[in-house]
């Protein structure tokens, strides 16, 4: 599904990703953990095509297609979805209008008939229910005045509607209470399927209690220094990242 090979990327002339490699097969859930400043969020931004992040080397393919040359919207239409750590507020554009524009654009690019307004509304209502957001939120401006938890749930709502192939969750657990965390996790779990993959970026093991990953990677100083199964997350929770300083040079890409 996603093949990242020896990726180098910089922002404002500072190299953040330094030879990152990652291979996610269809249906797999991968978690990326790591200390602050390791490049976790950068990875999400680079893969989703945020402006200001320049790729200096390496490759990234989604379903065999090179995504690094695509615009952000083309990557989304190709099936990539990033759940933001800090979703943007867009007053004056309603949540429903935003969902409709996104769905219309993606379906157009995929060459499928657009959904009718009624179909979209029906889906949106069901999605609201699933992430425990009142239906009135569809009429409100995108994320406008939403609490931190509501914003994160709104990201999951979009994911449910857009049905992406690859979902990158950028610290979707940060700032959430236990209830909201469960809602987010349930949203993700309900979407797990043999043809959909997840990349979960997180600081804490907590989210992984609810979303069981197949693989856990440790990202430090721009590359993956350790990979393992779910037990690696528990190990990190116990020992922290201090050990990285001891054997930083020995790290190998996954």
């Amino acid at each position: 599904m996603l093949k990242v090979k020896d990726l180098y990327a910089s922002v404002e002339d500072k190299t953040i990703l330094k030879g990152l490699s990652l291979n996610i097969k269809a249906g797999e859930v991968h978690a990326i953990m790591g200390p602050n400043g390791a490049g976790k969020s950068t990875l999400g931004y680079v893969l989703s095509g945020r402006e200001g992040y320049s790729v200096e080397g390496g490759s990234a393919e989604l379903d065999g297609k090179d995504i690094l040359d695509m615009e952000a919207d083309e990557r989304a239409c190709a099936g990539l979805f990033l759940a933001f750590q800090y979703p943007v507020e867009i007053p004056g554009v309603s949540n429903l209008e935003f969902l409709k524009a996104s769905l219309d654009a993606q379906r157009k690019m995929q060459g499928v008939e657009p959904l009718t307004a009624t179909e979209i509304l029906k889906m949106a209502r069901a999605a609201c229910k699933q992430v425990h957001l009142p239906i009135e939120f569809l009429k409100r401006g995108v994320n406008e005045g939403f609490s931190g938890g509501e914003k994160k749930r709104n990201e999951i709502l979009q994911m449910l509607m857009l049905q992406p192939k690859l979902c990158i969750l950028d610290e979707s657990d940060s700032g959430l209470d236990i209830d909201a965390l469960q809602v987010v996790a349930e949203g993700v779990n309900s979407q797990r399927s043999p043809d959909r993959s997840f990349l979960i970026v997180t600081h804490y093991q907590r989210l992984l209690d609810y979303i069981k990953p197949d693989f856990v990677h440790v990202l430090a100083d721009g590359k993956i220094v350790k990979s393992g199964g779910p037990e690696l997350a528990l190990e990190l929770e116990e020992n922290g990242y201090g050990w990285l300083n001891d054997n930083a040079c020995e790290g190998q890409g996954a």
Binding site: R50, E71, D73, A76, F84, V93, A101, A105
Partner: peptide, 17 residues
């Protein structure tokens, strides 16, 4: 970027914003 990351192309996103 937020709009684009959901599939809306840049010029449409500008109009929406």
């Amino acid at each position: 970027y937020y709009l684009q990351s959901r599939g809306v192309d840049r010029s449409k996103a500008q109009v929406m914003l």
